[in-house]
Amino acid sequence: MESILDKIQLPGSHPAAGIIHYTLHLADNALVIAHRNSEWCGHGPILEQDIALANIALDLVGQARNFYQYAAALIAENNLSSITITEDDFAYLRAADEFKNFLLTEQSNGHWGTTILRQFLFSTYQYFLYRQLQHCSNEHLAAIAQKALKEVTYHVRWSSEWVIRLGDGTAESHQKMQDALNELWPFTDELLTGGLASAANISLDDTLIKTEWTEKITSVIADATLHLPTSRQYVYGGTEGKHTPHLTAMLKDMQYLQRTYPGVEW
């Protein structure tokens, strides 16, 4: 399958490589989870919440676009491609193993509770990340993070309220949420291992993110009368392009038109 990366000359040693990869990682996280949420549109359990989740998806598509546009600008500034690279090239013309999103974001929707919990685990991470990123040395990333922080604050509030409501709702909803938590837990440590930021010369206090995230998750999960899994069996690989089959299936759907009719305007 053709990849846009074949048209970009970006050796790992290039001074801009780190920041481009990190920006794409931030973009991919936002896009992939946004896409997952958008799959719910029209199928939610309560009209108001269908709207709320679509709103979150919209915010995240917006964030993804900002990051992709910045990555495209970096390619242009550094003369890394003979053609003009756009936000859409990154989203539509890369293969699954070229995506750098966390595995958590690509997991399939499951039931409504799984989706809510996935959002809560991710948004909480994104919140503490953006809080630092808004003050980082790269003014473009800082500006995007600062703008997005208000949205993410709402995402955390909405998803945590629903985790609590469903966790402490009926016996059935409690069980469903506990199962979802056990299922998603192996993907959480990947959020907290950082990695890509330092290669981009973005200095973040990873330990602080981990502490803040753990504190928030622990308190909401307790309020939801759920139990944090004790398993330390974690899965990693998303940031290196080692994905679960969920992403391949998702991209097949998402990239269908661009792949079928290459090189035209939409």
Binding site: H35, S38, E39, L47, I51, E87, D88, D253, M254, L257
Partner: peptide
């Protein structure tokens, strides 16, 4: 929505369908 051919179209369509939900409401 999941197959919209550009990010801009995806955002527009998502916003549009979400509007319809709002109209229903």
């Amino acid at each position: 929505i999941t197959r919209a051919p550009s990010l801009r179209r995806k955002a527009i369509l998502l916003a549009k369908v979400q509007d319809e939900a709002g109209h229903g409401l």
